[in-house]
């Protein structure tokens, strides 16, 4: 009987796994991305524009000899553009087997969340950007919006990005 309880408890804890999220700010809202997809966080550096690139591409940067495409996250999220300032960061992430950078207003912290602490986002979105959000979580009376980086771009857009 006791063994059964232990097995159930272990199974429950496995289901309720703790995930780490890197949080960043965009337009006064806090977003989180899976820490496993984050490679590094860079201070803003000059981004070289690429002629003929899609509108959601800000340009490219040279990261230790590798060319990394930087995405305009605000544009992608349907937010108005903002001036670059001292807290602006480029978060280097890996998604869909590609390494890209996303420009954010600032990077905040790494938070730990149990799977059970993640709620579904309001399912009323019809716009394309609605699918970026995989859930929301309430932390200290602040809402954390969890972003699914794999869905940040469509399959075609990922392919297009790969060919830049």
């Amino acid at each position: 009987m006791k063994d059964t309880r232990n097995v159930a408890a272990v199974a429950a804890s496995k289901d309720d796994a703790v995930l780490q999220w890197v949080t960043f700010k965009l337009d006064n809202e806090t977003y989180g991305i899976n820490v496993m997809q984050v490679q590094e966080v860079l201070r803003y550096t000059e981004i070289a524009p690429v002629p003929g690139a899609p509108h959601y591409v800000l340009g490219i940067i040279n990261l230790r000899g590798n060319v990394v495409t930087v995405i305009d996250t605000r544009s992608r999220f349907g937010l108005q553009s903002a001036e670059v300032d001292d807290s602006t960061r480029i978060v280097i992430i890996e998604a869909e087997k590609q390494v890209i950078g996303i420009l954010v207003d600032s990077v905040a912290e790494v938070v730990y969340l149990r799977r059970s602490e993640i709620d579904n986002a309001p399912n009323v979105g019809t716009e394309e950007s609605a699918k970026f959000i995989q859930g929301v979580s309430n932390r200290d009376n602040e809402l954390l919006i969890l972003v699914d980086l794999d869905k940040l771009l469509s399959d075609e857009e990922w392919a297009e990005l790969n060919q830049l």
Partner: peptide, 20 residues
């Protein structure tokens, strides 16, 4: 809290008693 990709009439989300 404003959530992206929602209809224009969706004002956002507010936390109340640990619920959204």
């Amino acid at each position: 809290n404003h959530i992206i990709g929602r209809p224009s009439w969706f004002l956002g989300v507010q936390t109340h008693r640990e619920e959204q």
